[in-house]
């Protein structure tokens, strides 16, 4: 019995792979935590494959910065049809690379700003924020934080997108005064980590009073762990935003399928997965609304965001400013 069963299933899988050979494959490059089994990847894949008659394959490569760097390494020979997970701070460089084609998606986004980019389709977004413990001292602005004795962990803007986000946040809020703020923040910074994970882990271990993360981070603890002890600090200067986008590769061999996927991104099938797997706000709130728990999150009154080319122009100088202020 057992043998026959094995043969049968072997036959089935042969059939299956024969069927696969005829199915078009859509290759989507994304960052690791999107494609991993606890990220949005599996649910998105299942939902899209239901309708597309295709095989959607995610390729996860490090973080957002690694993603763009890999695409540039591969150049026009890349097998990617779609890239999913570039963030606003990388858009100028991504546009300059000339690797991407315009999209035809039209949607009514629920973003704090107007989105009109012709190449990139936003799929989720969030505000950067310092996340601390509920009930503890909470400063109300970047300035108040710099003047306090509170300890924070941040990420390095040279190796991490949240780190770069904070750099832009300070620049957007303080402009010419950014260097002064960094100097005053220096004694609050416990350390600067290479990536988000290390920093967040250190905060959870009690190494700091707060960590640079997102306003949505407390939702993870609340919903996944039923732990309401983490809060994001609302700051008077406003909060810098991160918008994550997807785009079609100019050299794709599946242009129709790629367009279909970009359209799918702004539909409920994709958007309803985002809040509790990627722990960000969906770019277009699905019909059923946001999951319970998200209503407890802080809602910054002012959203800050540099335009892509402006951010790119500011970056080198801002990093040098940051380095000089913190190296004292």
């Amino acid at each position: 019995m057992k043998t026959r069963h094995l043969i049968q299933s072997a036959g089935l899988s042969l059939l299956a792979s024969a069927a696969m050979a005829d199915t078009p494959v859509l290759t989507v490059y994304t960052y690791d935590s999107f494609s991993s089994e606890w990220g949005p990847g599996p649910a998105v894949e299942a939902a899209f494959e239901e309708t597309c008659g295709c095989d959607l394959q995610f390729v996860g490569t490090g973080d957002g910065a690694a993603l763009l760097s890999r695409l540039r390494l591969e150049g026009t020979r890349t097998e990617a049809d779609i890239v999913l997970g570039l963030d606003t701070s990388l858009l100028a460089a991504a546009t300059d690379s000339g690797l991407f084609a315009p999209h035809s998606v039209e949607a009514d986004y629920d973003l704090p700003i107007d989105w009109t980019d012709e190449t990139f389709v936003p799929f989720d977004w969030g505000w950067f924020a310092f996340v601390g413990n509920a009930g503890a001292e909470a400063p109300t602005s970047l300035r108040a934080l710099a003047d306090s004795d509170l300890k924070i962990v941040i990420q390095d803007p040279r190796s991490s997108t949240p780190g770069l986000g904070l750099l832009m946040w300070v620049k957007a809020a303080y402009g010419e005064e950014a260097a002064t703020l960094w100097s005053d923040l220096a004694d609050n910074i416990v350390t600067v980590t290479p990536g988000w994970s290390e920093a967040y882990g250190m905060f959870l271990e009690g190494e700091a009073d707060a960590v640079l993360s997102y306003t949505t981070s407390p939702a993870y603890h609340l919903i996944a762990e039923e732990d309401g002890s983490k809060v994001a600090w609302p700051f008077a200067e406003g909060h810098y935003m991160q918008i994550e986008v997807a785009a079609k590769l100019a050299g794709t061999d599946q242009p129709e399928l790629a367009d279909q996927f970009l359209a799918f991104i702004v539909s409920d099938g994709f958007q309803s997965v985002i809040p509790t797997t990627n722990w960000m706000y969906p770019a277009k709130v699905p019909a059923e609304g946001l999951p319970q728990g998200f209503e407890t999150l802080i809602q910054p009154e002012q959203s800050l965001l540099f335009e892509a080319t402006e951010a790119e122009a500011l970056r080198a100088e801002a990093i040098e400013e940051w380095r000089a202020a913190l190296s004292q």
């Binding site: 390095d156 980590t193 970056r315």
Partner: peptide
């Protein structure tokens, strides 16, 4: 070096290399 260095004063060459590849390409 990056995690325990406490800030950009503790930057090693490898960090500069990382930045050159990842962000500046």
């Amino acid at each position: 070096a990056l995690t325990l260095g406490g800030g950009p004063g503790a930057t090693t060459l490898e960090v500069a290399i990382y930045q050159a590849v990842r962000f500046d390409f």
